[in-house]
Amino acid sequence: MTDIFPETTVTSDAMPLTRDHLPQALALSRAVQWPYRAEDWAFAFDLGRGFGVEMNGRLVGTALWWPYGDDFATAGMIIVADEAQRRGIGARLMDALLADAAGRRIILNSTDEGQALYRKRGFTPFDNVIQHQAVLAETPELDPALPLRPATADDRATLMELDRAGAGMDRTNLLNALFAMADVLVIERDGAAAGYGCVRRWGRGVVIGPVIAPSDEDAKALIAALAARHVGDFVRIDVYRSGGLGPWIESLGLPQVGEVLCMALGAPPEARDGVRLYALSNQSLG
C-alpha cells in the first residue's frame, strides 16, 4: 500500500470532534467494516464527547466517551485509519479522552488490536462481550404465561432505577434517548416493571438491547419477544459472556460472529438489587 502520509507529515494533536467531522468519521468506521449508519454516529455524538486527529486536513482517528452519572463513563468508537497506523495516533486519542474523563471509572470493549494500548493506561479485563447476528429466519418460541407488555410513560422512573441497578451506573441520558426511538417491553410483576428490553434500528438492521432482567428466563423472554417483531430482518445482539445466554441465542438462529474483551480503568460497575444487564445497547455505549 502506498503511504499517503509520509513520515515528514505533521500530525495534529487530538482535538475536539465536531459535527462537521461526522461524515469523515462515518467513512473511517466503514473502512474498518463497522456497521454504523450516519444516524448511529449522530446518536452517539449527541450523547457524549469525542476527539479526532487530522493529517493533511483529513480525519484519520476518532475516540468518544459517554458520561454516566458523576462516577462512570464508557469509551468507544476508537478508530485509526489503516494508512495512519503506527504513528502514535491511538495513544494521542486515548490520552486526550482520559484527561477529559479524569476522575471517572471507565469501561470499554476492546478488539485484540487495542488491548496493548489500553493495558498500558491501566485498563484491566473483567468480562467478554459476544456479538450475535444474522437475518432472523424464524419466530422464536414465546411463553404466553410470562407477563410482558409495552412500556408506558408511567414506567419511566421504574425503568431508570432498574437500569441503574442492573448496569451499576446512572445512564439517564442514554435511556431518555433510547426510549424516544426504541420499542420497549417490560416484565410486569406485582403491578410494576421488573425488567425491560429495547429493540431499535441500528447498523445493518436492528439491535436488541439494553436488556435488564432479574433472571436468565426473564431475559430470554424479553429477547425472544423483541426478536419476534423482526423476523426477516437483520438482527444483532451483544451479550456478556458471564450472562450465559450465548448458546440459547445461537439456538434462535443468531450465531456468534465476534467477541471483544471488556476492560475497566478502576473497578467495573456492579449490578445490585437482583437484576443485571444481559444485553448492551451497543458495544460502545454499553
Rank of each mutant, 00 (worst) to 15 (best):
R87F: 06
L28H: 05
L261V: 14
E217R: 01
Q24Y: 13
E39K: 12
R87D: 03
Q133N: 10
F45Q: 08
L93I: 09
R229M: 05
W41H: 07
D273M: 08
W41D: 11
D218F: 14
V199I: 15
L136F: 06
G274E: 06
R119S: 03
E141G: 11
L175P: 07
P214N: 09
G191S: 09
F72Q: 01
D233N: 02
G114P: 09
P268L: 12
L285C: 06
Q24L: 15
C262A: 15
A180S: 08
P210S: 12
P6Y: 07
R92A: 04
N128A: 05
V235T: 03
R30L: 12
Q133Y: 00
G90M: 08
A225Y: 04
G266F: 09
D273L: 08
A73W: 08
G205V: 10
I106G: 01
R30V: 10
A14P: 10
G69C: 05
M169H: 02
E259D: 07
I237K: 01
S281T: 10
D154G: 06
A102D: 08
V186A: 02
D190A: 14
I223F: 09
D20E: 13
G266Y: 12
V60M: 07
W248V: 11
L226A: 11
P268H: 13
G197I: 13
Q33D: 10
A81E: 04
A167K: 04
F51N: 02
V211A: 11
R104Q: 02
P35S: 13
W34C: 12
L28I: 09
Q133M: 04
F179S: 01
P16W: 07
G209M: 06
D40R: 05
Q33K: 15
D100R: 10
L178F: 14
L142Y: 04
D127C: 07
Q256M: 14
P214C: 08
M94F: 06
P140L: 07
L146F: 06
L148Q: 03
G168T: 01
I223G: 09
D127N: 11
Q24V: 14
G246L: 01
W248I: 11
Q133F: 00
R58L: 13
D112I: 04
N109M: 07
A145W: 04
A31K: 15
L17S: 04
A228R: 08
P147K: 00
R200Q: 15
D155V: 05
V239Q: 07
D163Q: 00
N56S: 12
V135P: 02
V207M: 15
Y118G: 09
V199C: 15
I107V: 11
R171L: 00
I237W: 01
G52S: 07
R119C: 01
G57C: 05
M263R: 14
